[in-house]
């Protein structure tokens, strides 16, 4: 009997809930695998998919969003061994799953903490509520590839934003595997879109895109690139989170969620 030939996997992009190859047909070898090399047009498609998903995802009740994200954590748990096999330290995989659950829990609590009734000098009922910013472009940190990615994606989408994520250039396997987890959870297509490839090639188009509302530059290592990205982002006044390399294992706080929120305030005459 002949020996079985293993099925080799091509790691592809994740756009609108599907796994297309790059429209350019390019790929690049990394971590002993072939990974799609995203182009400017793949980025454009990802933003279109993210924009299309905003209405339904932000309109989903916070409670329901939390449940969907919890389901993602369940799926992550089931793939734990696969992430370890890809070279992720086991304790970081556990931390990533716990982080995801932690953020999922915030979905219906954040509006209580950051919204509420405001005392005003008049017979008005004055109410503030945090609302999602819209489409968030994220440059994910290279290290740790799973925990870092989870720590930037989960806080962006839990509040109702949708995301276009540029995954780590050197360590894209865990990010693409996370995309496979998202695809098999109940997360609607387009809420998270993940591109692999050269950050320096795609990020400028993401930063300049007029239909992107916010930019998380956490994973941009090159200071000069970060500067030009921030300048490009100013064209339509994107909210920008500057590059940083925090201790990913520490308590993240709510900063990454509140960075991509708008506050809606309503004045209402009391009447009685």
């Amino acid at each position: 009997m002949s020996e079985r030939v293993a099925v080799r996997k091509t790691y592809k992009l994740f756009i609108g809930g599907k796994f297309p190859r790059s429209e350019s047909g390019r790929s690049y070898p990394v971590q002993n695998s072939n990974v799609a090399l995203a182009s400017r047009k793949d980025l454009r498609d990802a933003v279109v998919a993210a924009r299309a998903a905003v209405k339904a995802w932000s309109g989903t009740t916070a409670y329901n969003r939390g449940q969907v994200l919890y389901r993602v954590a369940e799926m992550l748990e089931g793939r734990r061994e696969q992430f370890v096999a890809l070279g992720e330290p086991a304790d970081e995989v556990d931390a990533a799953i716990d982080r995801w659950v932690w953020y999922a829990g915030w979905s219906d609590k954040l509006p209580q903490v950051y919204g509420g009734a405001n005392p005003v000098a008049g017979p008005y009922f004055n109410l503030s509520a945090p609302e999602p910013t819209g489409v968030v472009g994220i440059v994910a940190p290279a290290q740790p590839s799973l925990l870092g990615l989870v720590s930037v994606v989960a806080p962006a989408i839990v509040t109702g934003n949708t995301a276009v994520v540029l995954a780590s250039e050197e360590r894209p396997l865990a990010p693409v595997t996370l995309a496979e987890v998202l695809a098999t959870s109940d997360l609607p297509g387009g809420v998270v879109n993940l591109l692999t490839g050269r950050i320096a090639e795609t990020a400028p188009h993401l930063a300049a895109h007029m239909d992107v509302n916010a930019l998380d530059l956490t994973g941009v290592a090159d200071g000069e690139l970060a500067r030009t990205l921030e300048e490009a982002a100013a064209a339509n006044l994107k909210r920008v989170l500057r590059p940083s390399s925090p201790d990913w294992t520490a308590d993240p706080g709510t900063r990454r969620m509140t960075a991509f929120l708008e506050t809606k305030t309503v004045w209402h005459p009391k009447g009685v």
Partner: peptide, 9 residues
């Protein structure tokens, strides 16, 4: 303009 526009505009 060289940059992608969006339906908002």
């Amino acid at each position: 303009t060289g940059v992608y526009s969006g339906p908002d505009y």
